[in-house]
Amino acid sequence: MATAAPSAPQGGNSHDLRTIATIWVVLSIVGDLAFWFLAGPHIPPGRMSDQARGAQFDFNVLFVIALPVVILVWTYLGFAVIRWRASRPNADEAPVIVPPRTALRIQTSWIAITSVVVIGLFGFGTYELIAPAGAGGGEGPTPIWKPNTKTILPIQVIGQQWMWTYRYPSFGGFETTQLMVPKNTEIAFHVTSLDVVHDFWAYQLGVKADANPNEDDVAYVKPEQLGRFTVRCDELCGLWHGAMYSYGHVVAPTAFYHWATTTEQKLAANTKTLPPFAWTYTPGANGASGSLYPSNVDPYSKSSLYGSSTVKVKQYGASAAQS
C-alpha cells in the first residue's frame, strides 16, 4: 500500500488496479466454490421434480455469475472509500485523470462485456426454459414446450376463494381437495379459477401457474422423489389469501392408481352432481363480478365462452401407471 508512488500516477494506477483485481479474484473464487458446493445443493425448490432440479441448477448458475459482479463492485467501492478518501496523505496532489483513449477503451469493453454476459444469460435461460417443458411455469391454454412422451397425466387445479380443488379427468373427473401425483410420470396441471386470479404454487415441485377465470393454464412437471409438497396461493386473491395453502403428495405410481380408482368409486355419486368436466368453467355468478352483472348461468358450470374447447382426455390406464 505505502509503495504506491505518489509522483507516478500511472504506476499508482496499475498498482491499485492489481490490488483490486487480486482481492476480487480471490474472493470470487472462494465465494463461488463455497456457494456451489456448500449452499448449492440446498437451494430451493430442491430436487423433488425434473423442473425443480432445473430451477435449482439455474439459480446456482446465475448466483455463480452474479457473485463476482457483486464482489467486483463492492471491492472497488470498499477500496475507494479506504484508499481514495480526501483525508489520506498526498490527497492534494495533481488529479489523476483517466486519459480519453483509456476512458474510451474502458467504456467500450464495459459495454462489450455486459452485452456478452446478458446475451449469454438469455441463451442459457431460454434453453433451460424449453428443455424441461416450460420449466414448471404456466404456459397458457396452448403450450408449445411439452414433455416428449405420450402418457401425460392431466390433473385439473381449480382455484376458488379460498381453497384448491383438483379434478382427475382420467378417472371420471372426480373432484377432491386431495392432491396426489405419481412419481416418475409426466403430469400436466390444468390450472383454472372459478372467481378471481389465484396462483397455483406447488413449491417443492417447482410449479407455478396463475389460475385465471375462463382460462386453462397448463404447467408440466415430472416428480422424481416421493414425499409431501406445499401448495400455496401466490397471487393476492382477497381476504384469506394468506390462509390458502394445503399439501400434496408424490406417491408411487401403483399407489396412485389404487388411490385414484378407489376415490373415483367412492365419489361416484358426488361426481354426477358436478358440472361435466371442462377445461374452464364459468365463474360463479356471486363470485368475481360481485353480483353486479345479470347472469343466467349457474355458478360453476361448464364454460360456453372464450377458452372452451372439446375435452379429449386420453385414458390414463393401469399400463401407464405401472410403466
Binding site: 423442473q51 430451477a55 439455474d58 457483486v70 463492485v73 444469460l121 433451460e128 414448471g136 401466490d234 397471487e235
Partner: peptide
C-alpha cells in the same frame, strides 16, 4: 450503489423464467 447492485442483480434472477417459477410473487 451498494443497495442498487443487490436490487439489480436479483432482478436478473427474476428475469430468468425457470428461476422466476420459484421466486415470482414471493
Amino acid at each position: 450503489y451498494f443497495n442498487f447492485l443487490i436490487g439489480g442483480v436479483t432482478g436478473v434472477f427474476l428475469s430468468d423464467v425457470p428461476v422466476n417459477v420459484t421466486v415470482h410473487g414471493s
